[in-house]
Design a protein around this nucleic acid. Structure first.
Lengths: 160, 160
DNA sequence: TTTTGACTTCAAGGGTACTTGAGGTTTTAC
DNA sequence: GTAAAACCTCAAGTACCCTTGAAGTCAAAA
């Protein structure tokens, strides 16, 4: 129900919340909906990072929740992890990112999303045209053939 | 350059164009930009289909170009082949699809794209808010935590 | 006719994004 | 103190989406 600030909630097991409290893998997983194995995988890739306890267990700083959440949003939208990596460029892993770090990242994300949305919008427009003109006609729908190699130059097969 | 109707072009090797002419794998590949190996893979999956020559070589009917083009568009937008399969439901593989077949398919595609675009638009709005409010704040951005399990019901850890 | 290029199948390999399991350690709860 | 739950690493497995290579066949051009 409460879709807001669930990420800010403290684990019941701990029952206190210092603002710089560290989270276990399990807590991260519960908060973000991302499996522990996936979190470890992201860490291997360098998308996220953790401190270790004396017993070698992972402890995530709070701000890592943002990263993980953004990663999972990206996943839902079909954005590959390599692009996510790019979007996180200049956002520090080792220290809590500053106001400006996140602002920059937000803008990068927005640009990425904008490109994706525009691609979809164009395809939507084309398909609308197709519906109107009759039947997904190849003649009318250049979008269906956007990177066609036939048009490059005179060599090879061309239209008559 | 000519981005239009390249798909309608005939191969120079043949030099004639019956409207029901069949295309080889290589021709399909050149026209759509999709590798022959990928075309065979799509065929294994049942996304496309071909006739065979007496010598067991594939020959694709012209209308298969539409399918392949739509598949590759979907790929560019991060849409999985299983969704593509769904979008092609009721579009016949064995015969040339009718006007209405493609109209229905177009509408299905449009609905799929619309959903995707809306997801992106919402994320864009959220990020805009984040940029405005300061720094991708988790408090403000419920989108970052959309399917949070903590909110489901009373059991387990909850916010304080 | 012969040669070349395009095609065939089938098996294996590769990248991405993880999950699963074995075998062992740490932390927490009682 | 002890037992259970949670964690650790590492290797292997899985699913999707293909590519590559071997070994051979077909089709078209010279």
């Amino acid at each position: 129900m409460s879709q807001h600030d669930a990420v800010e909630a403290e684990p019941a097991a701990v029952g206190k919340h210092a603002p710089d409290e560290l989270l276990t893998v399990g807590e991260m997983s519960r908060r973000t909906g991302v499996a522990p194995s996936a979190l470890r995988y992201y860490e291997d890739l360098g998308l996220i990072a953790s401190h270790r306890t004396d017993g070698n267990q992972r402890r995530y700083p709070r701000h890592m929740l943002r990263r993980v959440s953004l990663i999972s949003v990206a996943k839902r939208l079909g954005i590959p992890l390599s692009d996510v990596q790019t979007a996180f460029e200049n956002v520090p892993l080792d220290t809590t990112p500053s106001h400006e770090d996140w602002q920059q990242a937000s803008r990068r994300w927005k640009r990425q999303l904008e490109l994706r949305r525009q691609g979809i919008e164009q395809l939507e427009r084309e398909l609308t045209g197709c519906i109107g003109c009759g039947c997904l006609s190849m003649k009318a729908c250049r979008l269906l053939n956007p990177d066609d190699e036939l048009g490059e130059h005179g060599s090879g097969p061309q239209r008559l």
